[in-house]
């Protein structure tokens, strides 16, 4: 299969940075795949997200080597607005993603579509579709700043999705939300999956990543420390040295030496419970 995203030997240094934010990063993501990106703060997760949508190198004036090809487009050879139709990015802070210039949720979601100059009837069709998909019907006429954090972040996702990208990156979209908001956003992310999109999501909550991701990219100090199935990545025994903890289920299984048939440890609740039940039957 042809990869949807190809990152090849990508290095980047912000112009005010002392160290490289990204250092020789290479990986591929396949169509429809969900790639979780984990790693401690400053590991390069945000920079990587910015590189996928062309903000690196077009918005920041740093030093970029290597290349990023998203949906067949080399990000260096196009513009951020051109790329927005292929790859979208949802940021961490729900507030600063609100344009501030629009008075309703409806208008806010339409903002990007106005910018790319779509015909008016196409805009209204897509905005209505997004409002339904992300459960924003009851707030469609509300001022964007009046929404709860979870609603605001769903609106941000809807605004990006309205541009119909094939790939969506999300940079820790739940880190500033309460449990309800965070649950709402994860539901919205599940909706993206069901739409067949390629999703790349940076996230600190390892249990969530273990549950949603097909593969996990583990970053450390700007480099790729691992890129594999969640069971493989989270079964590594040096995770704490790399600045992340394994899912709690994995830690329990390690202590009990409870392994899946392929030798890896379980990473989700369901998987751990199933293994424990089997093992108790066999013991």
């Amino acid at each position: 299969m042809k990869p949807e995203v190809m990152v090849q030997d990508l290095s980047y240094r912000y112009d005010d940075g002392e160290e490289k934010a990204l250092d020789g990063v290479s990986f591929e993501v396949y169509p429809g795949e969900f790639l979780g990106v984990v790693g401690p703060n400053k590991a390069g997760k945000s920079t990587l997200c910015q590189a996928l949508v062309g903000l690196v190198p077009h918005f920041f004036h740093g030093n970029m080597d290597g290349r990023v090809v998203a949906g067949g487009i080399d990000t260096r050879e196009t513009t951020v607005d051109e790329l927005s139709k292929t790859v979208g990015l949802v940021f961490q802070n729900p507030f600063t993603q609100v344009t501030g210039a629009k008075l309703t949720v409806y208008e806010e979601i339409a903002f990007g579509l106005e910018n790319i100059g779509l015909p008016r009837d196409e805009i209204t069709r897509r905005v209505d579709e997004m409002i339904a998909l992300f459960g924003l019907e009851h707030v469609r006429h509300h001022n964007p700043f009046e929404l709860s954090g979870g609603q605001m972040q769903r609106m941000a996702i809807a605004s990006i999705m309205a541009l119909r990208p094939r790939i969506v990156a999300l940079d820790e979209p739940t880190s500033q939300l309460d449990p309800q908001g965070s649950a709402e956003v994860f539901q919205a992310v599940a909706a993206l999956r069901n739409q067949g999109l390629t999703v790349i999501m940076a996230e600190q909550k390892v249990e969530k990543i273990a549950r949603y991701a097909d593969r996990v990219l583990l970053m450390h100090k700007g480099k790729v420390a691992a890129c594999d199935r969640p069971e493989v990545v989270f079964s590594r025994d040096n995770l704490l040295d790399l600045g992340i903890r394994p899912p709690a289920y994995t830690s329990v299984a390690r202590e009990l030496d409870l392994r899946r048939p392929d030798g890896t440890l379980p990473v989700t609740l369901d998987d751990a419970v199933a293994l424990l039940r089997n093992s108790s039957v066999n013991s």
């Binding site: 309800q180 649950a183 419970v273 039940r277």
Partner: peptide, 16 residues
Amino acid sequence: DSFVEPPHATQLGQAL
């Protein structure tokens, strides 16, 4: 009701 999930270890214990 408060959208609070118990700690992951607790959830595992409860599931078992």
